[in-house]
């Protein structure tokens, strides 16, 4: 079952390949995050789904109906796809209520009650209805934009970095609120963001874009633990990358013997997430350890840099709690929990 289906969608701007044969399917009721660094083509992808642009080639269909086949297709105003953009894009000349009701059919008899309902849905105070967009805070503007898009009862909602203009605290709040509202309304959502933490916490499906290509798509856990390549691994979070020799479900590396989930055999690069590694002060100078060269105190989470013994690798950075924090110069042992990921 898919709601939105993209088949080898490509788009160029002059010599720049913005999207290169991107295929993606979005199940109904799901939340998908498209994540990638700036310039990776994620906004182009969103604009093509919304209908503001058309692909050079490839097909796009919603609920079985063809939206675009190459440069021909259904224009944005006939698609019934909602969009909330980076700064809300509220109509500056209309009040909050008029903004929300903008997409209603002309002369909708239940206009007032629907506005009230939508405002309640996005947790906006009804007293705001007469205000103008510039009298609202950033978070309130985003709520109005969401209510306005919900007013059309879209099957698909596109979120174009809607939280990036907000303060850190507010951002998380809004993210949860939006996820809740969409869930309750049963609306499928696609979020575009460059913030990997936001993507991982918001979505059931994450799609990583790089240089116009879809590198990998899957559940957040899957992508975090089993990234396809090192760029993806590093993009989605901190990672410790080590050369190793893999044999029989184990890898021999600078940290000793580590379990892997791979039937690969021979030389490979393995990846561990820093939270898999525990730093234990151990003056016995063990094999799978090294010397602490730097400690950065950061409150709840501190960073310890460990230069591995006998290996010509840069020091590895490990995030650890401030309890039993080693000091610079200490000899430490590095214990690994869980399995390492093998590239290739």
């Amino acid at each position: 079952m898919t709601l939105l289906d993209l088949e080898t969608v490509s788009k160029r701007y002059g010599p720049v390949r913005a999207l290169d044969a991107v295929s993606l399917s979005v199940p109904p009721g799901s939340r998908t995050a498209v994540v990638g660094p700036s310039g990776s083509g994620k906004t182009t992808l969103l604009r093509i789904i919304a209908g503001f642009e058309f692909p050079d080639s490839g097909r796009l269909s919603l609920d079985g109906a063809l939206l675009a086949d190459g440069p021909a297709g259904v224009p944005a105003h006939k698609r019934g796809i909602g969009i909330v953009s980076q700064d809300g894009a509220l109509f500056p000349h209309l009040s909050v209520a008029d903004n929300i009701a903008f997409g209603f059919e002309r002369g909708a008899p239940d206009r007032a009650s629907r506005i009230a309902e939508l405002m309640e849905m996005v947790e906006l105070d009804g007293a705001m209805a007469t205000r103008r967009p510039h009298q609202l805070s950033g978070g309130q503007q985003q709520r109005v934009a969401l209510a306005r898009a919900l007013g059309r009862r879209p099957r698909l909602m596109l979120l174009d970095e809607p939280f990036s203009a907000l303060d850190t605290g507010l951002r998380e709040n809004m993210r949860k609120a939006v996820a809740r509202v969409l869930q309750n309304a049963g609306i499928t959502a696609i979020l575009v963001t460059h913030d990997q933490a936001e993507a991982l916490s918001f979505a059931d499906q994450v799609a990583v874009l790089r240089e116009g290509r879809l590198v990998q798509a899957g559940s957040p856990q899957m992508l975090y633990q089993h990234p396809r390549d090192r760029e993806t691994a590093l993009f989605l979070g901190d990672a410790v990358l080590l050369p190793a020799i893999v044999r029989n479900g184990f890898a021999d590396c600078a940290l000793g013997r580590v379990a892997v989930e791979s039937d690969h055999a021979g030389k490979a690069e393995i990846m561990l997430r820093p939270e898999q590694i525990r730093v234990v002060v151990d003056a016995a100078a063990p094999q799978n350890g090294g010397r602490v060269v730097d400690v950065q105190f950061g409150g709840a989470i501190c960073t310890v840099a460990v230069a591995l013994a006998d290996v010509a690798l840069p020091p590895i950075l490990i995030k650890t709690s401030s309890v039993a924090l080693p000091a610079a110069g200490n000899l430490v042992r590095l214990d690994v929990t869980g399995k390492a990921h093998v590239f290739g």
């Binding site: 919304a50 105003h77 894009a89 306005r148 059309r152």
Partner: peptide, 13 residues
């Protein structure tokens, strides 16, 4: 973006 928003809300050009 404001004009895009209007189009996504069902308005013809």
């Amino acid at each position: 973006a404001v004009e895009d928003a209007a189009a996504s809300l069902g308005l013809a050009p």
